[in-house]
Every structure is written in C-alpha cells, then in structure tokens.
C-alpha cells in the first residue's frame, strides 16, 4: 500500500488549469524528486498532498486517508505529514525552542517538558543546539531551514514534503540543508521533494518526476531519467539545469 497515492488530480484557478490529471505513487521509504520549469505546477502539486491547496478533480490518498474528502480531519492528517517551505516560515515571534514545541503541545497534546526535550534532541541532530534560545530573525537562512526541518520532524511525521527547500538560500548555505535531507533519506524517511538540486536527486532519489504546464510529463526511475529522458522538454530542462 503506497504512502501517497494520486489519481488524476486536476486543479483550476478560475478558468486557468494549473494541474492536469496528475497521477503518481510514493511507496513507504521512497524518495521522490519533483522538478520542472517555474509555473509547471510542482509547488501546487505538493501543497495538494496535505490539503493546503484544494483541488477540484481526482483523489489523493495519504496513508489511505482521502485528502479531498470533506469528512477528513485535515489538521489531524497534516500533523502526521511534515512540510518544509521555500521561505522557511518559522514563526518569527517565537524562540527556536518554542517553534519546535508549540505544535507538539497544542496539536499532539504532549507535555511542555517532553516537547522541549524532543525539540532539543532534534536541534542537536541538525547541529543547532546552541541556537535554542534565539529567535528566527537572528539565524542565517540555512540555519532557519534546518530548524524548519527539525520542527517538521518534531511531530514524528510518517512522510515529509519539501517545497523548494533550498531555492531561497544563498549558494554557500545550500549544502548544510541538503546534508540534513540526505541523512533523512538514508534513514528511510518517505520524502517528496520539489527541487532543482539534481545532485541531491542523483544521490538519494528513487524516482524523478518531471512536470510541465501542470502535467506529469516524466515519472521514471532515477537512472532512466538521467540516462535518457523521453520528452524533449525534460531534455531541454535538464541541459539547462546541469550546465548552470
């Protein structure tokens, strides 16, 4: 049974179609990289997975729970799906520790001390224990994104979604974030990652999805995708990205 399953998902903004009959599956423990030119719908697609963006047609199942079903308790589902954003989206008015514990306490109902302990452990893991009492505005972009990953992990997610986690970062900070993600992938976390970092894809991805104009154009094993992408658009895209 796949962790994430999408069947013919379509979405419109007014009359403009942003997603067209997208179907794919992510198995437990699998790492999927989603790439494509800007405006191809990849960010929208990943936000549909935990219901942050509504969609009009098709269905998405996460751990066999239907995301689009109005009866589904979305907060409960989202609490189990970790998400990391392009612009980090730490809560600026809370210290790093509070950022890590607030949802554990308010959503999962954990005790404050337990939540703090768990948060500190994860901070250790992303190498930022020393920053525990600072505020997000006092950290660099790379550090903020590592905190954001720790924040998502603090909820003990069954899978993780990454929406262009490194594209807002200065080049010298990209690797510190990618290292954390690689480690996570190697530990067997189920991950769906929207990114242009092909090095990351080569290293840990099982499959690569290429999107263009709201459609999933390629959905291949990593080796096949990098070896010989079938569509011309994907070839063009790859040559641009890799020679970059």
């Amino acid at each position: 049974m796949p962790m994430i399953e999408m069947n013919n998902v379509s979405k419109w903004y007014g009359r403009f179609q942003v997603l067209a009959e997208c179907s794919t599956q992510v198995e437990k423990g699998e790492v999927i990289v989603v790439c494509g030119p800007s405006g191809s719908g990849k960010s929208t697609l990943i936000k549909c997975v935990n219901g942050l963006e509504p969609f009009q047609q098709g269905e998405i199942l996460v751990n066999s729970i239907s995301v689009g079903d109005p009866k589904t308790n979305l907060p409960k589902l989202r609490a189990r799906v970790g998400m990391v954003f392009q612009h980090f989206e730490l809560f600026p008015h809370m210290s790093i520790t509070e950022n890590l514990s607030i949802a554990q306490v308010k959503v999962l109902g954990r005790g404050k001390d337990e939540a703090r302990e768990r948060g500190l452990k994860l901070l250790d893991r992303v190498g930022l224990r020393a920053q525990a009492d600072k505020f997000p505005g006092q950290l660099s972009g790379g550090q903020q994104q590592r905190v954001a990953i720790a924040r998502a992990l603090s909820m003990d997610p069954i899978c993780m979604l990454f929406d262009e986690p490194t594209s807002a970062l200065d080049p010298e900070m990209i690797n510190e974030v990618l290292d954390v993600m690689v480690e996570l992938a190697q530990e067997g976390m189920t991950m769906m990652v929207v990114t242009h970092e092909m090095g990351f894809a080569r290293k840990v991805a099982h499959r690569v999805i290429f999107m263009d104009q709201g459609r999933i154009v390629e959905d291949d094993k990593k080796e096949a995708f990098f070896g010989s992408p079938r569509s011309e658009r994907a070839q063009q895209f790859l040559s641009k990205i890799l020679h970059h």
Partner: peptide, 23 residues
C-alpha cells in the same frame, strides 16, 4: 506562507490565527 506553515503543522484554522497569525 505563515498561514500554510501553521496549517501544515496540524493547527486548526482558529489555532493558526491564535498562535501564528495574530501575534
């Protein structure tokens, strides 16, 4: 982004306002 981040953590909409947006 902040609204989405709140919701993605599993906060309900009122919780997202209370803990994330309004402060």
């Amino acid at each position: 982004g902040q609204r989405m981040a709140g919701l993605a953590m599993g906060f309900t909409l009122p919780q997202t306002y209370r803990h994330v947006l309004l402060p």
